Amino acid sequence: MDNVKLLDVAIIGGGPAGLSAALILGRARKQVSVIDEGRPRNAVTREAHGFLTRDGISPSEFRGIAKEQLSNYPSVTLAEDSVVSIEGEDGRFLLKTTQGMTITSRKLLFAVGMKDRPLDIPGLSEVYGKSAFVCPYCDGWELKDEPLVVISRGAALMHFAPLLSGWTKRFVVCTNGPDELSEAEREELRNHQVPLFDSSIRSINSSAGMVKQVVLEDGTTLPCTGIFFKPELVPGSDLPQSLGCRVSEAGVVSVDEFGKTSVPGIYAAGDATSQMHQAIAAAASGAIAAASVNNELNKEAWLRE
């Protein structure tokens, strides 16, 4: 890429949403660049699941296939870089990157996803993505009928426990501190034979990434072959909010059904816009947002002629 680039759409983020958007826009003959720092959230994951025709693929192979297919479209470029500032407005946004790139783009599409805030649980990082997961739709099949430990509490737990029961009934709950439950909720768990432990976690013992047991501060040992836990997520970038895009308390960018944010000319897609964090859903939302921004660009060009 040159030091200055003029684009129809700058796509910030190169996960399933951003790459899917680039494919749609490349096929629509738009000048597009996907700007991604190269540190995907699912880098720790061995396999991605639930994506038809790609079930069980590694995230790195998924991205490799996507980039190979995008190479067929000369109007699409990929840059491993980070956007550090954006100014301007609909029709002319000025972006600057850490590598000194200056980009002018008519539209923006944020596909920045979410990032995990490190959890202060000894041993969790060693098993994350190998035998500890966050989404049963992605990894529940591999752990069906296995003895599991669920690390969660409060309302999130009372949503997750019934959900996980479709894959296995053999799980216990560790709240890693106060459970934040009502007595009625505790009774509900007891009625479904779900043991509840509120002692803090001392350690997660594992071998080669495969969990063996969770040890609590009170000395309780919970043998298991897998863990599901509630992650603490933060937005992948604060740029949408800095540009005035409406963002929820959870950091989710508010968009309409076509991926439009509250700021003209700015779109968003993927995990940054939803709490349903599945690759296939992110790719779909990227395609929808790309079609919407392409329609907007074509209509604007039509009216100028």
Rank of each mutant, 00 (worst) to 15 (best):
V150Q: 06
W141K: 06
M101D: 11
V194C: 09
L157M: 11
P162M: 01
L109D: 04
T168E: 06
L143K: 01
R106S: 15
E89T: 13
K96D: 02
C135S: 12
V112R: 03
P136D: 02
P178E: 13
A161D: 05
G154F: 11
Y128D: 04
A111R: 08
F110P: 13
G166P: 00
L94E: 14
D145I: 00
P162S: 06
N191D: 13
S165R: 15
S85F: 01
G91P: 00
V127K: 10
S199F: 10
G140P: 10
T98H: 07
T77N: 06
L108S: 08
L164W: 03
M114G: 01
R106M: 11
V134Y: 06
N176P: 03
P118E: 14
V112K: 00
A184P: 00
C135K: 04
G140T: 10
R153H: 15
P136A: 05
G123M: 03
R117L: 10
L196P: 11
Q193L: 11
P178V: 12
W141N: 08
D90E: 13
T97H: 11
E185C: 08
D81P: 13
D90H: 05
G154L: 10
G100P: 08
C174E: 00
S105P: 05
N191A: 10
D179W: 01
I86G: 03
A79R: 07
S182P: 09
K130Q: 14
M158A: 06
K96E: 15
E142R: 03
P118R: 12
M158E: 02
P122Q: 08
V173E: 06
D179A: 15
V149I: 11
R190H: 15
G113L: 07
T97F: 06
S165Q: 13
L181T: 08
D139T: 02
T175S: 15
P178F: 02
V127Y: 06
D139Y: 00
L119R: 14
L189Q: 13
V173M: 09
E89M: 02
S125F: 01
F197V: 10
V172L: 13
G154D: 09
P118I: 08
P147Y: 02
R153I: 12
F93I: 01
A111I: 06
L94R: 15
L148N: 06
C135N: 14
E188G: 01
M114C: 02
V83P: 04
L181N: 11
L108T: 07
F160L: 09
F133C: 11
S131L: 07
W167C: 05
L196M: 09
E87I: 10
A156H: 10
V112H: 07
S199R: 01
